[in-house]
Computed example of a mutant assay.
Amino acid sequence: MITSPSFYRTIHKQDKNKAKKVNRLIRHFIKRHTVKLVVCTAVFFLLFTSFLLMGTYASSNTPEAASAEEQIIRVQSGDTLWNIAKQISDGSHDIRYIVYLIKDRNDLQSTVIKPGQKLIIPSI
């Protein structure tokens, strides 16, 4: 079994040429797609910040003024949302639901209320 050294060199040279060609194609691919990636990231960033700004300007911490059907109460020392909800409950609704309505109507983040605070009680 005689093998020719030239045959081995021929394959090896082709592999080097292929490797160079593949490396060139990979570099070209990365350059081409890097630009796309940068542009997509910039567009995403602009859209995200614009939606964030819209949400910031749209939200407010003060609720709308009370309508004719709603009443305004001033929180006394020792009052809780649960007690207030119990006082205005007519028995047809769950008190937890009434607490939720009061929190939602007054844009409260928690059930903590302070004496002197005004609460709008929605009509049930």
Rank of each mutant, 00 (worst) to 15 (best):
M1Q: 08
T3S: 08
T3R: 14
T3L: 15
T3Q: 13
S4F: 08
P5I: 10
S6N: 12
F7L: 14
Y8L: 08
Y8A: 11
R9Q: 11
T10E: 15
T10M: 13
I11A: 13
H12W: 07
K13G: 08
K13A: 10
K13V: 10
K13Y: 05
K13T: 09
Q14V: 09
D15C: 13
K16N: 15
K16Q: 14
K16A: 11
N17E: 14
A19F: 14
K20Q: 05
K21Y: 07
K21E: 11
V22C: 07
V22P: 00
V22T: 14
N23C: 14
N23R: 05
I26Y: 07
I26L: 15
I26W: 07
I26S: 11
H28C: 06
K31C: 03
K31Y: 06
K31V: 02
R32W: 03
R32E: 06
H33Y: 13
H33W: 04
H33L: 04
T34M: 08
T34A: 07
K36Q: 12
K36C: 14
L37H: 05
V38E: 11
C40W: 14
C40P: 02
C40H: 06
C40N: 15
T41E: 07
T41Y: 08
A42Q: 05
F44E: 07
F44Q: 09
F45T: 15
F45Q: 06
L46K: 02
L47P: 01
L52N: 09
L52Q: 13
L53D: 06
L53P: 01
L53T: 12
G55H: 05
G55T: 13
T56I: 13
Y57V: 09
A58H: 09
N61I: 15
P63C: 02
P63G: 03
A65L: 12
S67Q: 08
S67N: 15
S67C: 05
S67I: 04
A68G: 07
A68S: 11
A68K: 09
A68W: 10
A68M: 06
A68P: 04
E69I: 06
E70I: 06
Q71R: 12
I73G: 00
I73K: 01
R74A: 06
V75K: 00
Q76M: 11
S77H: 11
S77W: 11
G78F: 00
G78T: 02
D79L: 01
D79C: 01
L81I: 03
W82I: 02
N83M: 12
Q87K: 14
I88R: 01
S89I: 03
S89V: 07
D90A: 15
S92H: 09
S92Y: 04
S92W: 04
I95A: 03
R96L: 10
Y97D: 09
I98N: 00
V99W: 00
L101Q: 12
L101D: 05
I102A: 01
D104G: 02
D107L: 05
S110Y: 13
T111E: 13
I113R: 04
I113W: 08
I113E: 03
P115R: 02
G116D: 10
G116A: 06
Q117N: 04
Q117A: 03
I120L: 03
I121D: 00
P122W: 02
S123W: 07
I124F: 14
